[in-house]
């Protein structure tokens, strides 16, 4: 199953990166979200997949008995999901504001604020 998920992750990365490279700002938000999913699944797959054995101790046990899913990537992903949401919200707000200020959704035309030299 890791093999199949590897292809899913690859597909999500490709789609996310492609959208991030668009000039239309709305697509960038969507691309960011897809990249977030891709990264989370990447971590998840790297921790190996286990069916039906969550890393939770059964009542009466004093330690986790094999087989069980790797809890470390799960803990990492859990915070990553929430932070990903925060970033997505921030990017959304940023893009909304810049759209309002510059009256365009074409990234290439949004250069008034960081003109070089």
């Amino acid at each position: 199953m890791e093999v199949v998920l590897a292809f899913v992750v690859g597909g999500l990365y490709a789609a996310g990166l492609y959208l991030m490279m668009r000039r239309s700002i709305v697509k960038i938000i969507l691309g960011l979200a897809l990249l977030g999913h891709a990264a989370n699944l990447l971590l998840f797959t790297m921790g190996r997949l286990t069916r039906g054995h969550p890393p939770v101790l059964h009542e009466g046990d004093t330690q986790l008995l094999h087989p069980f899913a790797d809890p470390i990537p799960e803990a990492l992903i859990l915070t990553a999901i929430v932070i990903g949401f925060g970033i997505q919200a921030f990017a959304t707000a940023l893009i909304r504001r810049s759209h309002e200020m510059m009256q365009t959704d074409d990234l290439d035309k949004m250069r008034a604020s960081d003109s070089s030299d």
Binding site: M1, F44, L49, T50, R51, G52, H53, P54, P55, V56, F68, A69, E74, I77, L78, I81
Partner: peptide, 8 residues
Amino acid sequence: LLFSAPDL
């Protein structure tokens, strides 16, 4: 959910 991460 399928792969043992109910929290996630």
